[in-house]
Amino acid sequence: MATEAAHGAETVEHAAGTGLSFHPMDQFMIKPLFGDGAVGMFTITNATLWMFICILAIIAVMVLGTSRRAIIPSRSQSVAELAYGFIYKMVEDVTGKDGLKYFPYIMTLFMFIVFSNFLGLIPMSFTTTSHIAVTWVLALCVFLGVTILGFVKNGVHFLGLFWVTSAPLALRPILAVIEIISYFVRPVSHSIRLAGNVMAGHAVMKVFAGFAALAIVSPVSIVAITAIYGLEVLVAFIQAYVFTILTCVYLKDALHPAH
């Protein structure tokens, strides 16, 4: 273990020798906020801090922003209503009326992801959704919730999801295998898609920022950072949207397993 660490240190030393030092992944490190001790399960870390800021931001928009309950909404109230209407309509359109019961859960996922993504775009901040551990928990919650819900609501009929009755009988077992594999791959793709997108964007920005140390290429790299940042703003919203709408699609499968 120690040799590995020493080797890592050496490569950094080499890189530093040329005047350029790239540490694009350092921004994703978990650090304790107080003291330098090891990161235990309950340690208050930068991840904790930014999750807490995320809660505060959600409260600011969704609770404080709507506190006047105005018929003619203020700006923050409009934003809260817009978010509400956006997700509500998505759940209604994708899962149907009977999916609206689960709207608060989906809203929770969406608000957490979208706020984390945007808070992560603040320079020097920490992006909680760039960690596979976080998105994995989110995706696993959806996967387990949807699977359990499917069996509770439909019983054995939920397995009809894997038995494609519209296909010729001979093909059905093969399709069933494919369907089962794709079903179990869902949480993996669901979580990696979000974390991967967010992490890649942030890492790329850091790489360009590393190049900015060279005077010749610094204008190019700054322009590139700006462009990537713009792209990341889009990605921040789109990935939250994609995660949410996939959750709705999986929920629809659980409620109406027939193809």
Partner: peptide, 8 residues
């Protein structure tokens, strides 16, 4: 670092 994040 994983258990910490999952917990929070």
């Amino acid at each position: 670092w994983i258990p910490n994040q999952i917990f929070w």
